[in-house]
């Protein structure tokens, strides 16, 4: 009896130690920089490995409890090393380069992923994160799901657009100042608008300040504010009162002002993009049946 128990416990110990060895090869303590990369780590089940995040990693809200390593472009080597990480995961936006070199020099694996907003980049990034988590299958499934949802979105836009012209859309950042910044052609903001079935009407590149007159001249049919705080009707009314030019646009007259969480715009395609697209699409085409149940306009 005792012998069997001993053998059993020995077997258990051997099995366990093997599991530990396999897990040891993978990085266990992660520091993640870059909002959407961190979101993907969490989405793929790696949240318990995170020991620190940068200031752009704001979702989900529990990440705020982790130590902050500062802004991803202004990292400090010693601060990161004090968290004793095995891996510094981030995007090509991480810097400054001498600091990254110091972190590498201290024996920390540095994984720098691309932030380009396209599926090929996303697939590559998720495959890397999956491999680092030891869950390639989970990552492959996430990529497949993501592709499928974007496909559905494209199909939905095609149906909704039948016989209609796409609404003209402008995405504004930081409306509080005198002149808001408008998302230009090459931004992820413009990509979101196009994918949701709108037509991005800002002609410039990157984010540029837009004068009130230019806003009137563009006269968009829909305006998206990258700011959650204007979601309520009172906040909207106050905003329009402060900005008479804004109130004179088609979008304001037809009450087509949308609020968008600005963190979806940071660091490439994140896991919340498909939901965001469904919500935007439903707002662009109010007559169409929304793609998802919770995407009510």
């Amino acid at each position: 009896m005792r012998v069997t128990a001993r053998i059993a416990s020995l077997c258990c110990a051997v099995l366990l130690s093997q599991a530990v060895v396999a897990a040891d090869a993978l990085p266990q303590r992660w520091v993640s920089a870059g909002g959407s990369i961190t979101e993907w780590v969490v989405a793929l089940g790696g949240q318990n490995k995170l020991v620190g995040v940068d200031t752009t990693s704001l979702n989900p809200i529990e990440l705020k409890k982790l130590p902050s390593i500062g802004y991803q472009r202004q990292l400090a080597a010693e601060g990161i090393l004090s968290l004793k990480p095995d891996l510094l995961l981030g995007t090509e936006e991480m810097g400054p380069p001498p600091v990254i070199a110091q972190v590498k020099g201290a024996g920390v694996t540095v994984e720098s992923l691309a932030t380009k907003a396209d599926i090929a980049t996303l697939e590559h990034n998720l495959t890397r994160i999956g491999a680092l988590l030891g869950d390639e299958a989970g990552a492959a499934k996430a990529v497949a799901d993501y592709k499928q949802r974007l496909e559905q979105q494209a199909q939905w836009v095609k149906t909704a657009q039948a016989g209609k012209t796409a609404p003209t859309v402008l995405l504004l950042l930081s409306h509080a100042g005198s002149s808001p910044m408008a998302a230009g052609q090459d931004t992820i903001g413009a990509w979101l608008i196009e994918q949701a079935g709108g037509r991005s009407i800002a002609t410039h590149n990157s984010y540029k300040a837009l004068s009130t007159e230019a806003l009137l001249a563009l006269d968009p049919e829909v305006i998206i504010f990258a700011d959650r705080s204007i979601a309520g009707p009172e906040a909207k009314a106050a905003l329009l009162k402060q900005n008479p030019a804004l109130a004179a646009t088609h979008a304001a007259k037809a009450d087509r002002l949308l609020a968008l969480d600005p963190t979806v715009l940071v660091g490439g395609l994140g896991p919340r993009i498909p939901d965001t697209l469904a919500v935007l699409g439903a707002a662009f085409y109010p007559a169409a049946q929304p793609l998802t149940a919770n995407a009510k306009p």
Binding site: Y71, R73, Q74, A76, A77, E93, G95, P96, P97, P98, V99, A101, Q102, S206, Y207
Partner: peptide, 20 residues
């Protein structure tokens, strides 16, 4: 663009970080 803007702002505040 916004990335270079952040670099510029931080440069103007100075830092001894990343000294080599």
């Amino acid at each position: 663009d916004d990335a270079t803007l952040r670099t510029l702002t931080f440069w103007n505040l100075g830092s001894l970080n990343g000294a080599s």
